[in-house]
Design a protein around this nucleic acid. Structure first.
Lengths: 121, 121
DNA sequence: AAGTTTGTGCTACCTTGCCAGTACAAGTAG
DNA sequence: CTACTTGTACTGGCAAGGTAGCACAAACTT
């Protein structure tokens, strides 16, 4: 069910993390309010708050109490190569009709395989 | 914590799903026994069993009661393009020092972005 | 046929995490 | 300075899912 709508703090955090590191949310750009996010994803405010807290702890966002939560200046975007290849993979996956979750599982598998076997080809 | 050791039925299932669909576990190849998997990941047997059950329900594995669980014949591997691009992404991500979970988050972000904006260029 | 392996099916307990609603703190805007 | 916005904190309740341990069924092995 992670392919559709986030339903937990971790999933919500992951969603924003992806938006930020992929550049879809730029430097200084503002995130929805905690209350708004809670409504959007139909979760309790405490859950949305927890997600934001995690993001701040990672240094991805800056939160000043009444000014809202914004993407932290600098050091947010992942290297362009990664983004491009992620886009390429997404395209291939969608084109082939492979479910997102399956693609993720495959990615994890090859990631760990490279870890274990330095010989690749 | 999904980057290290699986700790729930879903995560364990996802791990084997990735191994199968990526071709790391080939047709007819045998998976560890439920009891073994339970030990490997330090979970209860019921949890490992649940994971295997899910895989069978997806048609990825075939289980005959005392013969163990094996990868279902045919229809297991994902299209080669997807695997190759997943490998390329993994390589780029590891090379750039981007955490696996972040790469996954990015992938999800661009996946949904493509869903929303059919214009890709 | 006998014994062993292996997946399944319980039961009761317990931990984790989300929910709901509210109250509070710390800024911003008029 | 006053009012509003927005993130934080807290309480008790609750549902989902994992734990442990065992009993059982079916099929492989000898």
């Amino acid at each position: 069910m992670t392919g559709t709508t986030p339903s937990s703090a971790d999933e919500i955090a992951a969603l924003f993390r992806g938006a930020i590191r992929s550049g879809r949310l730029g430097d200084g750009e503002r995130l929805p309010t905690v209350r708004q996010t809670a409504k959007d994803f139909d979760v309790a405010q405490a859950t949305a708050a927890k997600a934001y807290k995690a993001l701040e702890h990672e240094g991805l966002v800056v939160t000043r109490t009444a000014a809202g939560t914004r993407v932290a200046p600098g050091a947010s975007r992942a290297p362009q190569v990664v983004i491009e290849r992620a886009r390429a993979l997404a395209e291939a996956g969608e084109g082939a009709g492979v479910p997102l979750d399956d693609v993720v599982a495959i990615l994890r598998a090859v990631w760990m395989a490279d870890d274990a076997e330095p010989e690749s080809h």
